[in-house]
Simulated scan of single mutants.
Amino acid sequence: MTPFTFMRSALAPLAFSFALATAIVTSGAPAQAADADPAAEKFVTDVSGKAIDIISDKSSDRAAREAAFGKLLSENADMQKIAVFALGQFRTKPDEAQRAEYLKLFDNFVVKVYVTRLSDYHNEKLVITGSGPAKGGAMVQSQINFTTGREPVKINWWLFKNGDTYKVFDVNVAGIWLAQEQRSAFTSVINNHGGDFNALLTHLKTQIANAESGKGSSAAAN
């Protein structure tokens, strides 16, 4: 993996933790456009609020926060669709047992790696700036405002819709689609091991172990 790819793949969980789990949604968004989707905006507002409540609960230990965050993701993000998407051209590679193990590891990987990094950020504010239709559902625009005076970071939320239910599929932070970046990282692991799908399973186990031991800074890349 090139240094550039390493840096971008490492950014994905870091940026997603900004977008999903350190956001406090504030009022004062611009007036609604004609094709705006207030329901989608409310969905992002609610998910962000629940996430920050979970991470900010200092009365709970890490295991409890991880369990709550995992439940939030399972209810509000299409984790299986994201996991399959992240396999790219290798989506049909695993056999039934490997696929089942991968889906379980993927969920665990996302929760542990992201929750590990959340303690690095505080007092950020996520502001909804607009919304509109997108393939499969809706796109919600927002930005993170920093209390330090740092320039705001723009975030787009790609939501899939099934009936009246929204699910997060991907998040674009500063121009980077995070599920696509994770796909690049995962397929690189498999390619670098001659197409051996078990190498990805080992990779995920290693990153989970790193997160559990506090080595979150390298947890998304290899």
Results as ranks from 00 to 15, higher is better:
Thr2Tyr: 11
Phe6Ser: 13
Phe6Leu: 12
Met7Cys: 03
Ser9Leu: 06
Ala10Glu: 09
Leu11Met: 14
Ala12Pro: 01
Leu14Pro: 00
Ala15Val: 07
Phe16Trp: 04
Ser17Asp: 12
Phe18Gly: 05
Leu20Arg: 02
Ala21Phe: 05
Ile24Lys: 14
Ala29Phe: 00
Pro30Ala: 04
Ala31Thr: 14
Ala33Ile: 00
Ala40Arg: 01
Ala40Asn: 03
Ala40Gly: 12
Glu41Cys: 00
Gly49Tyr: 01
Gly49Leu: 03
Ala51Met: 04
Ala51Val: 03
Asp53Gln: 12
Asp57Asn: 14
Lys58Arg: 15
Asp61Cys: 07
Asp61Ile: 10
Asp61Leu: 06
Ala64Lys: 12
Ala68Ile: 06
Ser74Cys: 04
Ala77Thr: 08
Gln80Leu: 10
Ala83Gly: 13
Val84Thr: 11
Leu87Val: 08
Leu87Glu: 04
Phe90Lys: 13
Phe90Gly: 09
Thr92Asp: 14
Lys93Ile: 04
Ala97Phe: 01
Glu101Val: 07
Glu101Ser: 12
Leu103Thr: 09
Leu105Phe: 02
Phe106Tyr: 15
Phe106Trp: 11
Phe106Ser: 03
Phe106Gly: 02
Asn108Ser: 15
Phe109Glu: 02
Val110Asn: 12
Val110Thr: 14
Lys112Arg: 15
Lys112Gly: 01
Lys112Val: 07
Val113Asn: 09
Val115Ile: 15
Thr116Gln: 12
Leu118Trp: 13
Tyr121Leu: 13
Tyr121Trp: 11
Asn123His: 10
Val127Gln: 13
Val127Phe: 04
Ser131Arg: 02
Lys135Gln: 14
Lys135Thr: 11
Lys135Gly: 01
Gly137Ser: 09
Ala138Cys: 11
Gln143Pro: 00
Ile144Tyr: 07
Asn145Cys: 04
Asn145Arg: 06
Phe146Leu: 09
Arg150Tyr: 08
Glu151Asn: 13
Val153Thr: 15
Lys154Met: 05
Ile155Met: 02
Asn156Phe: 06
Phe160Leu: 11
Lys161Arg: 14
Gly163Ser: 09
Asp164Cys: 00
Lys167Tyr: 15
Lys167Trp: 12
Val171Ser: 06
Asn172Pro: 00
Val173His: 00
Trp177Gly: 12
Trp177Gln: 08
Trp177Ala: 15
Leu178Lys: 02
Gln180Val: 06
Arg183Asn: 08
Ser184Phe: 07
Ser184Asp: 14
Ala185Cys: 10
Asn198Cys: 04
His203Arg: 06
Lys205Phe: 08
Lys205Cys: 05
Lys205Pro: 02
Ile208Asp: 03
Ile208Arg: 00
Ala211Val: 03
Glu212Met: 07
Glu212His: 04
Gly214Ser: 06
